[in-house]
Nucleic acid binder design. Sequence first.
DNA 1: GGTTTGACCCTAA
DNA 2: ATTAGGGCCAAAC
Length: 106
Amino acid sequence: MESFHERVIDCIRQIPAGRVATYGQIAGMAGSPRAAIIVGQLLRQHTQTHNLPWQRVINREGRISIVNIEFPAELQAELLRNEGITVTEQNGSFLVDLARFQWKSA
DNA sequence: GGTTTGACCCTAA
DNA sequence: ATTAGGGCCAAAC
């Protein structure tokens, strides 16, 4: 039996390169649409352990809401651009066009 | 077990 | 349109 956090980790690992997913989307995929915040919480713990593509997980607006100094938003934007994703810069925050780059799960 | 903690989301003023 | 507040859920302490 997989725990919620295990499913979340698994879903994130399944995000293809060049695509992004929202926290709510991942949470819904894992079975709890309201637990979006937990996705981020778990990410923070397991990113360094599981080498997860944390850069492909963003908030509902398509913005980067990262706070961790270990992984600055600049780095995330860089990685996303490297995958072919268009990242728009706005007031120091980075915006991704969800309409085009959001990952549609099966 | 109860309390605290968030890389969030929604509604209301 | 922007700002403020509350709710939500699972994990860690």
